[in-house]
Design a binder for these strands. Structure first.
Lengths: 81, 81
DNA sequence: CGTGTAAGGAATTCTGACACG
DNA sequence: CGTGTAAGGAATTCTGACACG
């Protein structure tokens, strides 16, 4: 179910998080909801699971950066010897 | 996915139907979305599939009554001899 | 019967900011 | 850093009605 079909209100109910938290985790690049033409967010069930996982880890002491998805393997710096 | 999570707008996109049709099929007892506290409809993926099926049958000539789910087997009238 | 539409209101969501720590 | 909140606006959805056929 990677179909982006849920509004933030439904996600709020499903995850138990606040809209503030949900939007913040998006701002921190932890989730990537789609947008309607009007600008409203649309989430998938995967997003919901991810949010639950994220919040659990947060309570265990992780911060948003540590929970970020494995970034694209860009190679930079580390000049060769 | 019998989880009622989609707003009518998403259902409109997924089915290709108009909101008018979607609401009308509900009025005719063909689908049964839930409601938010505020009164907004929430549909499941099952509802979406059902709507697509319904509309297809409609175009084949069926009417809303004929497409109604098998009604509860209530017994009435038909006085015994 | 099944569907389109204009009308007015209400629920939902959005952004940017101030706050705290 | 992560989250709460009040503020104002905009997108979304709701109902009941008129229309056509």
């Amino acid at each position: 179910m990677e179909n982006k079909v849920m509004s933030i209100g439904v996600v709020r109910e499903l995850t138990g998080l606040t809209e503030r938290q949900i939007r913040y985790y998006e701002q921190r690049k932890l989730i990537f909801p789609e947008r309607t033409k009007g600008g409203n967010r649309r989430y998938s069930f995967e997003d919901v699971n991810k949010l639950i996982y994220i919040h659990q880890k947060m309570q265990e002491g992780f911060n948003t950066v540590e929970l970020r998805e494995p970034p694209k393997p860009r190679r930079r710096g580390c000049a060769p010897a």
